[in-house]
Nucleic acid binder design. Structure first.
Lengths: 215, 215
DNA sequence: AATCAAAATGAACATACGTTCATACAGATT
DNA sequence: AATCTGTATGAACGTATGTTCATTTTGATT
C-alpha cells in the first residue's frame, strides 16, 4: 500500500478488510486448483500434494480452510451446482413469457460453454460416479430433484395444456434424459462433440413431442 | 479325489485339467470381488485389501493373475462391456426381421436387468468418469464408437428410407442420447427408477421420430 | 510313491497420502 | 510504534496402499 488513509476514511473495502479478502481468495484458489486436478487426474489422482502444487499455497491450507480434503471436494461440486443453476436461471429470465421460447431457452442453457465444458463435465461425472458410495454428493448432481427439471416440467405442462399432466411429465422426462445423454456424449467425446448439432437434435425431439408448437 | 482313473482314461476334464479350472475360477473371483468393491465403495475405495477380503483369496493373487491392480480394473470393465454386447446381440437376434421390431428390441435390451442394474451402473459410470484421465477405458465405455450405436443407426436408416441418411443419423443420435440419459437416471435413482416408464418414454420418442411406424 | 512345476500365500517393504501442530507471518487494533 | 490475533507455513507423523518375493501348497507327471 502506497496510499495513506485519512483518519476519517474507512478501510479500502467497506464491509471486509484486506485480511478477509485474502482469505476468501485463498479459499477460492484451493477450489479452483482442486477442479483442475480432478480434470487432469480424476478424483483418484487428486491428492493434497497436487492441489498444493497447482494452487501454490501451503499444504496446511486445506485443513485450515475446509477441515479435510473431503470437504474441499464437496465445496467444489457445490460451487459447480451453483454456477449451473445461475446459468439456466439467467437464460430463462431473458427468455420472455412464451412457453415454447422458455423451453428452448432451458435446453439452450444446458449447452452454454460456461457450463458445458471439459472441466465441468469431468468434475460433474466424477462426483456422479461416487454418489452411490458417497451420498453427500447427491443433492448437487441429481437432476431428478433439481429446480432445472422442475422448471422444465412446468414448461412442458403449460405447453401440453390442462388435463395432460401425465403426458407432459413424460415429455419432460424424455427431454431431461435427452439432455443428460448429450452431456454424457460431450464428456466422452469433447473434441468431436458439436454443440449446434446436439442442440438441434434436442429441438427436433421437442418439436416432435410438441407438434403444435414451433421452436 | 477318491476315485481312481484307469491308465487309459483321460483326465476328468478333456480340454483342461483341474489346475487350469481353478486358476480360471480364481481369476474370475477376483474380477467379481472388484466389481462388488467398486459398487459398495467406489473406485477410490477399491483397495487391494478390500478385494482380498471379499474374494477370500490371498493378497498376492492380484499381481499373480493381473500383474497390477490397474489391470484388474481393466479386466472388470472389459468383462462388463462384453456382457453388454452379448445382451443386445441376443435381443436383436431374437427380434426378427422387422426394422421397427429391431429398434424396439435394441431399446428394450438396454433396460434388461442383466445389464441395467445397480452394480453394473456404478461400475460403468465409475470408469466413464475416469476415462478423460485414463483413456485406456475409452473403448469399453464410449457409446459413439460402439457396435450398439452402429446397429441402432442402421436400423434408423432403414426406417427413415433411402435419401434420408442425415435425418436418420440425427434420429439415432437422439435415441442414443435418450438411452444414455435413462441409464444416468437409473444410476442416480436406482430405487425410484421405473423400467417400464423409462422404456415407454423411449418408445414415445421413437414413435414421434418415426410417425409412420408403430412400436 | 516320488518328483516336478505351476499356483498360491502372506509377511515385509517402499512409497503415497491426509492430517497435525509448533512456528512464522501479517493485517488489524490500540 | 507496539501489540494483538487470526492466517499461513511446512516439517513431522501415522496410516494406508500397491507390490515384491521367499516359502508353502498342490495338481500334474514319471
Amino acid at each position: 500500500m502506497t496510499t495513506t488513509n485519512n483518519a476519517s476514511t474507512p478501510p479500502a473495502t467497506p464491509s471486509e478488510g484486506l485480511r478477509d479478502r485474502k482469505k476468501a481468495h485463498h479459499r477460492n484458489l484451493l477450489i479452483q486448483a482442486t477442479g483442475e486436478a480432478v480434470m487432469n487426474h480424476g478424483v483418484r489422482g487428486t491428492t493434497i500434494d497436487r492441489i498444493q502444487q497447482i494452487s501454490g499455497l501451503s499444504r496446511g491450507m486445506i485443513s485450515l480452510h475446509f477441515g479435510s480434503k473431503e470437504n474441499l471436494l464437496l465445496a467444489l461440486i457445490e460451487q459447480l451446482a451453483e454456477e449451473y443453476t445461475e446459468n439456466w436461471r439467467a437464460a430463462v429470465d431473458h427468455g420472455g413469457e412464451d412457453p415454447a421460447g422458455r423451453l428452448l431457452a432451458l435446453m439452450r442453457a444446458d449447452f452454454a460453454p460456461a457450463v458445458l465444458n471439459r472441466r465441468n463435465m469431468v468434475i460433474w461425472f466424477a462426483f456422479r460416479a461416487e454418489t452411490p458410495a458417497n451420498p453427500q454428493y447427491r443433492p448437487f448432481v441429481d437432476s431428478r430433484e433439481s429446480n432445472f427439471r422442475q422448471a422444465l416440467t412446468e414448461t412442458c405442462r403449460t405447453l401440453s395444456g390442462p388435463g395432460n399432466e401425465a403426458l407432459a411429465d413424460q415429455r419432460a422426462y424424455a427431454l431431461t434424459a435427452l439432455l443428460e445423454g448429450m452431456w454424457a456424449d460431450f464428456h466422452l467425446n469433447p473434441d468431436s462433440f458439436n454443440r449446434i448439432e446436439a442442440l438441434e437434435t434436442c429441438v427436433l425431439v421437442a418439436s416432435r413431442l410438441f407438434p403444435e408448437h414451433s421452436f
